[in-house]
Structure formats: C-alpha cells, structure tokens
Design a binder for these strands. Structure first.
Length: 869
RNA sequence: GCCCGCCUGGCGGAAUGGUAGACGCAGCGGACUUAAAAUCCGCAGUCGCAAGGCGUGCCGGUUCGAGUCCGGCGGCGGGCACCA
C-alpha cells in the first residue's frame, strides 16, 4: 500500500519552494498586488524550539499561506530576539561567551524551524544582537533623545548588593536576591526613561480603533494605562516641619472630603523621611517598608500597617478640624502624589486601616433607601452612588459626579486644589546594568554632561573580550571600553555602560523587517508599503508590556520621521498555551518528575515507568515546563510523524486562543489522517482522467456537493481563525471521498471518477495552509508531469449551485418541542412545508382536537405550532 | 482585594436565537489476518423494553423557541504595579 513518505517528501517540497522563491517579496514591490504582512512574535534563541513555538508559527503560517492563495503579496519574516539574560547566565555558569552561545542556538533553531515547512522569507532574517541591527537602534535612540522623547530620571530599584545588579520583582524572594541570597535593598538609580506617559491619552484613545484586537487585550491595556479623573488637594500642616507647610494628595473621590479621618503618605515621601530623621521608631518603620518586596504575592498577604507621625493637617473646609498624618505601607510613591486622605466609610482599605488603628469613621454618602440618622458603616465600606450628607455645602448633592464637580470648583476658587486627570501608566525605564544588550550610545562628560555618540561611530559595538568572573556589569569592568574622549570638548570622559532593556529591541523589529538591509534605520518607502502588520500572532503574556511599548515606539518613530503610521499591529491574535500531563514517581521530597518518553501507558489504564515498571502518578494537565518535565520535543515529533502531522494536530485539537493539551494519541490520530488522505488521493489519482462528463449520477452529485460545500465552509473557518473547525470540515470532505470510493458506480463510473479527482484536488488545496507538504504531494500525483505547485495556486472557488443541498431537513415543533422532521427541497413554499408537517402522524396526533394559535415558520429551518386547549 | 475570561458526552470541541453534541480522540462490537499492527464496517449523551422523559455549572427572566440574550449565584482559570 502506498504511503505518504514524509521523510523524503517534506525536505523535497521545502527545497522546491525555496528554489522557486515562493515566499520572497521585495522591500518595495512593484507587482501591484495588495500587501499582507503576517508576523509571529519572534523567538528568544534559547537553544531548541518548543511546542509553543510550533503552535505560534503554525498559526501564522496558515494565515500566510491562505492569504497568499487569496492573491496577496504576503510578507512573512523571521528573526531572533537575541539579547537577554540567559546568555549571560550561560556565560557565568558554563564559561561560554554569550555571543557564541546565542549564535549556536540560532543556528540550531533555524534548522528546526525550517523543518516545519513554514512559508517564511528567510532573506529577511536578522538577530537583534547583531550590530547591523542594534546600530540602527542606537540611532533611533539618539533621534528620540533629540526629539525630547527620552529623559534621565532617578527611580527606585531592587538592588542586589552581592550580584551588583538590579532585580525584577520576581527575582526577589522573601526579600532576598534569587541568585545571591543577599538581602535586597531599594536603591535610587539614575536611569534613562522613554516618555511613554506623554502618549498616555493617545495610547488609550487609539485602542478603540484596534478593531481586530481581542477585546480583553484592549481592556487590559486600558486598565494598565489607567486614566482617572480626580483632584489634587493641598492640606496645610498645623505646624510646618523643615519649612514644609503643606501636603498635596491625589484623590478620585474629593466628594468624600468631609468623611476624612486621616492623611497617609508613602514611606518614600519627603514628609515620611523628615519624620524618620526625627524619630527612630519612624525610621525603623520606613526601613521595614523598604525591605518589603513589591511583588504581588507579598502585597496580597501584607498586613496594612502605618506609623503615626504626630503631625496634623487642617481640613480644607471644616474650620478648626485637624487630622493625623500617618506613614502607611499601602500608599505608593509612584502613583499620584504619594499621599492620600483616608475616608474609611467609603474605601475598604481606608476602613481596614481605620479599624486597625481606631480612627474615626464618618459616612458622607447615603445609599438610596437608607435613613441618614441611622446609616452607619460597620466593616464594609460603601463605594456606590448616593446622596451626600454630613458635608456642609455639599449636602444633598449626588455622589460622586455632581458633588465632585462642586467640590472641585470650590477647591479651585480657594486656590487649595484643582481637578486633574491622573494616569496609572509610568514612564518606561530602559536602562539595564547588563553586558548582553544594546549599548546605550551616550558619553558622560564632566564638563559637557550627556553627549551623544556621533553617528559616524555607530554602531557602537559591544567589546568581545569580557569576563564574567566577578559580579556586576562586565561592560563596567572592561579595562578600556568605557574610557573615551568627549566628542564635544575632547576631554577624558566615560561611556554609558548600561545597555537597553530587551523590550526596546522588540519594539521596532517589525519595522526593520520591511527593509532588513537598509543602511538607514528603516527604508521609508518599504515601511510605507508594508506597515502596519496586518496580522500579529503571539502569546497572551505579552498583552501589555511588549504590545504597549511597540505602540509607543511606533508613535515615537512617526514623530522622528521613520514611520508614517502610529499603530504597528492592525490585527492581533493571542494564542493559548500548550499543556501536557505531568508524570511523577515517588512522593513528597523523594518524588521525581519523568519525561513523557520515560513512561508507558498500559492497556489496563495504569501508567508505569518504562525501565523499572514503577507506578507513575499522572498529574494534572499544565503548561509545559522544564521543571515538571512535561515537555515534548518538537524535533522528535517531526522525526517520527513529520511536520504536517505536528501542524495538523496542533490546529485540530481546539480553538487556537485556548490552551491545548498535547497528547500522544492526538498526534497519532493526526498521523493516521495524513496517511488516510494520501491513500484516498492516490486511489483517485489512479482513476481515469477523463473529460468533464455531461451528467453525474447520485453518488457523484453527492460528492461534488460535499466538495463545493467544503470550499465554502473551510474558507469561512479559516477567515474566522477557527482552524479546528476548518480541520473538521476537511475530515467531512475526506469522509465523503471515502463514501464515493465505495459507491458502486455502474453507468456513472466516468462521473464518479471525475468527481473524485475534483474532490481530491480541492482537498489538497484546502489543506495546503495547514499541511503544505502533503498538499503538494497529493497535487503532484494527481497531475503527474505538471510544473504547477499548490503554493502558487489561487484559492479554489466554490460553485454555489453545486454546493446547494437537494433536500433540506426541517424541524417540526409543537409548543417548541421537536416532534418530527420533514425533508423538502430548499426554498419550498410555506404552505407546502406546513402541509407536510401537519401530515406527519406524530404531529397530527398532537395537534388533534387542539386549536392552533400560531404557526411559526422559518424558511429551510423550522415549523413551530403553538396550540391551546 | 481589583480586573478579565471560561463552564456543553469519558475527553477536545461544534452549533447566524431555530433538529444540542458536527468533526476528532478514547471506547465497545464485528470483518480481514496464523497472530498483531494497519485497514474497513457498525454502535455510542442519559433514564427507559417502548412511547416518552431528562439534559449545555446553578436559580430566575425575556421569547412561539435559549448553549446562545438579560439579572443573580457558584466553580475554575488568567492578569495585576494595594492605583486612592
């Protein structure tokens, strides 16, 4: 029996596509075709591709191949997000240079990706660690600097004094550095920031226009940007301290000012520091707060605590009333002004705080239906709408809106506050104290300050001769690299030794892909042609930072003349994770995780360790991870089953936006289908290749209907990103081909043969975005000697008249319950359908002696008799 | 704590407000085979001999008709920088 020999066929077709240049496009095409830019998030070259990559790049490849068949000039590039910490970790742990480690990984992963048969334009490939890329990034930064989009600012960071490095929140575990175990201290560092907050309003407003983005991603970004309307209010200190006479707070609820019971400042607030300087106890409390991690988990469980400074502030409206000033661990220095006023009755956190420290609680918003005299707040703050009470000139106003407007007007007229719009978004700090990143191209001169590295010296390359044998940044330790003369005055000066956050690298790579060989940052004609990306595909984990930074950088590039568009990604699709069962032997501390290939599933339903026969506990399905060893290596799957099988299974299992579970059985099932379809095609190819018959018999007509319907349904499914449904429709077509194979043709042999060849040819085209090698293999056998390949064919068109059903089944309901079905030609007259429905014995029985109140009729769908009596 | 998403057979899932469970996986029965694999045929939500009930997390509503729309509740998952 002939088999689909993927081992030979897949490389052969890959070579054929490559030889024909099927997937290459020009930087500035002149073919007049509409453009379509498909991009998947480029990979970090960790060493091997994983199933998440296979899923990501398969999804993108389906889109790219489908759009190409629909007549678009498709740009589908690939590159490497090649700077980052793992390379430095490898250098420290295994004494291998980050560049060598990275380039070797790239070579390996490129080979693995190429085995997948992706329709990529490899001539556009680049790696961000290549000076040919990052030199342009340096130029971009200098342009941003000149355009006022960059600032130098002090900000608090987690500092590991042993590793001499800044730590992310997730690298701080119980207040200690993850690697060194040293107690982390908060440190104020001077850093470069991109002024993303200048674009906060625009980044928020433009979300509405991103119609082909998932709603939840837009929502997450909107929440992240966090626009709020409130007021700044200045409270006079009863007694000025260190010359400071007032404290400014930001609040979204100025309408509840009369419900104030305290004022609280962040531990980093100047007033807190002043208190710390005065009282040892305050200093101790502040120090304690600084040791507190800022990660979510810590904050979740953190007790709300405070320290009473003994200072008091005057209420802005109530003559003679004063309130205590506390330092509180839940007030953030980065948000608003770093100080709040507490209104316990209408804010849960403030209420918890007030109850803990026995502070006053006065309700000032009365919920509808409550009595003002009796209303009290117990342990549940009321944050809904209502009417203002206990509030002087605000009494009787609707809260929050009307009261907010009135109180802001009053604050402004008294000159002690004003209405403001506040943002949650903070500027983007881009400085990193690392070696393996893009050097920030500035020089610090004692006389001239910050001086840009001259364009003529770009790219400013990383020195190669670095050592990782001591803590800190190797760039900083390098004996000569940082010592230069100031380009402006010529005196001895020092290079910046910080490198860029790798998010900078990935915030403009999509633009560079349009003209990867350009001597400029980008070729303006190329980006004008190709940008924006029409379909971007990647993981939901990048929903906020990467996508928001890219949106900002696109705007910055627009401002500096590099781009004509502000939004980089017109369409976004976020895929789910790839998961797998986990396997474990032993329990507790003695337990060991096993790789899937180390276990065996027995027919009796038990799972055992392959080599020892030990019982294995099958764990819950979770994201593939090295620590759980529940990983499946794409390379070995492709070797065993072929790329098409891997692609097909990953598409068939479930909707692409959901998490999918990789199972051996599923992969096997997909493999069997490749063989079944190949066999059906081979049999059809052997049938007589005659002229189009004049007439077709029943079986042939039925197959042609399935063929043309499947063109409609697969196309629809692909357009809607419902790839699992597209797969199901192909299964239906293959089942119909199987039926036709078994049908006794008799006099209709010629028609049936013709219909089978047609069906198989269509099937090859319909699977081609998903299983491109098998598609070519089938097509070439159907058309021996032809030089046409599927990758160059136009997408098939359905003949609607052939696709139409000869009979439709119409449901007959009585009082909304299904009681029968009737089959009639589509488009039958209402009277005929109702007559047929009433003639059904079961329906007739139910209608007998009853009065028909109403007949609901939906053409080709349903009849519903509503009866009474 | 806040925000978001999801919940349909043994499993993954399908279903413009119109026959719930397409298609696949796993399963069961059969054919072929010395045997196995592969392949092919058939069965299959659930209760019931059947007629007929009951079924899309739970409760209620709108509708001739609800998996789908609305209100409430529950569970699971994800995000987060306590956002005042």
């Amino acid at each position: 029996m002939p088999r689909f020999d993927f081992i030979r066929a897949e490389p052969r077709w890959q070579a054929e596509w490559d030889a024909r240049g099927c997937f290459r496009v020009a930087d500035v095409p002149t073919d007049g075709k509409p453009k379509y830019y498909v991009l998947e998030m480029f990979p970090y070259p960790s060493g091997k591709i994983h199933m998440g990559h296979v899923r990501n790049y398969t999804l993108g490849d389906v889109v790219a191949r489908y759009k190409r068949a629909r007549g678009f000039a498709v740009m589908h590039p690939m590159g490497w997000d090649a700077f980052g910490l793992p390379a430095e970790n490898a250098a420290r742990e295994r004494n291998i240079h980050p560049a060598k480690w990275t380039w070797e990984n790239i070579a390996n992963m490129r080979g693995e990706l190429q085995r997948m048969g992706l329709s990529l334009d490899w001539t556009r490939e680049f790696a961000t660690c290549d000076p040919a890329y990052y030199g342009h990034q340096q130029k971009l930064f200098l342009d941003f600097l000149a355009a006022g989009l960059v600032a130098r600012r002090e900000s608090w960071v987690n500092w590991d004094p042993v590793d001499g490095t800044v730590l992310a929140n997730e690298q701080v575990i119980d207040g200690r550095g993850w690697r060194s175990g040293a107690l982390v201290e908060k440190k104020l560092l001077s850093q470069w920031v991109f002024k993303i907050t200048d674009y906060a309003q625009d980044l928020l407003a433009a979300l509405d226009g991103l119609e082909r983005w998932p709603e939840r991603v837009r929502l997450m970004q909107a929440n992240w940007i966090g626009r709020s309307e409130g007021a700044r209010v200045r409270f006079a200190l009863e007694t000025p301290v260190d010359g400071v006479a007032e404290v400014e707070v930001y609040t979204t609820r100025p309408d509840t000012l009369y419900g104030m019971s305290f004022l609280a400042v962040a531990p980093e607030h100047p007033l807190a520091e002043a208190a710390g300087a005065r009282h040892a106890a305050a200093a101790e409390f502040i120090a304690e707060c600084r040791r507190m991690g800022t990660s979510e988990a810590v904050i979740e469980t953190m007790e709300k605590r405070g320290f009473d400074t003994g200072l008091r502030v005057k209420h802005p409206f109530i003559e003679g009333a004063t309130f205590p000033v506390w330092i509180a661990n839940f007030v953030l220095m980065e948000y608003g002004t770093g100080a709040i006023f507490g209104c316990p009755a209408h804010d849960q956190r403030d209420l918890d705080f007030a109850r803990k420290y026995d502070l006053s609680v006065l309700p000032v918003v009365l919920p509808a239906g409550e009595d003002a005299a009796a209303f009290a707040v117990d342990n549940k703050a009321f944050d809904g709408t209502g009417v203002i009470i206990n509030s002087g000139f605000l009494d009787g106003l609707q809260a929050p809106d009307a009261a907010k407007r009135t109180v802001i007007a009053e604050l402004e007229s008294r000159g002690i506050g004003e209405g403001v719009v506040n943002w949650r978004l903070r500027d983007w700090g881009v400085s990193r104290q690392r070696y393996w990143g893009c050097p920030i191209p500035v020089i610090h001169c004692d006389d001239c300050g910050v001086v840009a590295v001259p364009d003529s010296e770009l790219p400013l390359k990383l020195p190669e001769d670095v050592t990782f044998d001591r803590p800190g940044n190797p760039l900083d330790h390098h004996p000569t690299w940082k010592h230069v003369n100031c380009p402006s005055c010529g005196k001895a000066a020092q290079r910046e030794t910080d490198t860029f956050d790798t998010f900078v690298d990935s915030s403009w790579y999509f633009a560079r892909f349009c003209s990867p060989g350009s001597a400029n940052v980008v070729d303006r004609a190329a980006v004008d042609h190709w940008m924006p990306v029409d379909q971007y595909i990647g993981g939901i984990e990048h929903a906020i930072l990467h996508l928001l930074y890219s949106r900002f950088v696109s705007r910055a590039m627009q401002k500096t003349g590099h781009l004509g568009t502000d939004e980089p990604f017109a369409g976004l699709f976020t895929q789910g994770m790839v998961t797998h069962e986990s396997y474990r032997v032993g329990t507790g501390g003695n337990g060991t995780w096993l790789y899937p290939e180390e276990i065996e599933k027995r027919a009796d339903g038990t799972t055992v360790r392959r080599d020892t026969g030990e019982a294995v506990t099958v764990g819950r399905v979770e994201a593939m991870s090295k620590s759980k060893r529940n990983t499946v290596d794409p390379g070995s799957i492709i070797s065993r089953f072929g790329a098409d099988t891997a692609r097909w299974f990953i598409l068939s299992d479930n909707p692409p936006e959901r998490d999918m579970e990789w199972t051996e059985a599923g992969a096997l099932g997909a493999y069997r289908f490749t063989q079944r379809l190949f066999r059906l095609a081979e049999n059809a190819a052997l049938a007589a290749d005659g002229a189009l018959p004049e007439t077709f018999g029943t079986a042939a007509r039925s197959l042609r209907r399935a063929t043309h319907r499947s063109i409609q349904t697969v196309t629809e499914a692909l357009e809607g990103f419902n790839f699992n449904v597209a797969v199901a429709r192909v299964y239906e077509l293959s089942n119909a081909i199987g039926e036709a194979e078994k049908a006794s043709a008799g006099a209709d042999a010629a028609g049936l043969d013709w219909a089978r060849r047609e069906a198989v040819g269509v099937a090859a085209q319909l699977i081609s975005p998903m299983m491109p090698h098998l598609a070519e293999e089938i097509y070439s056998r159907l058309h021996p000697g032809s030089s046409t390949i599927v990758a160059e064919l136009a997408w098939p068109e359905a003949d609607a008249s052939l696709a139409a059903a000869e009979l439709v089944t119409i449901a007959v309901q009585v009082l909304g319950k299904l009681r029968a079905t009737v089959s009639l030609p589509p488009g039958s007259a209402e009277a005929d359908v109702i007559a047929a429905a009433e003639a059904d014995p079961n329906v007739a029985r139910l209608l007998e002696g009853k009065r028909i109140v109403k007949r609901v009729y939906v053409p080709n769908r349903i009849v519903n008799f509503v009866i009474a009596g």
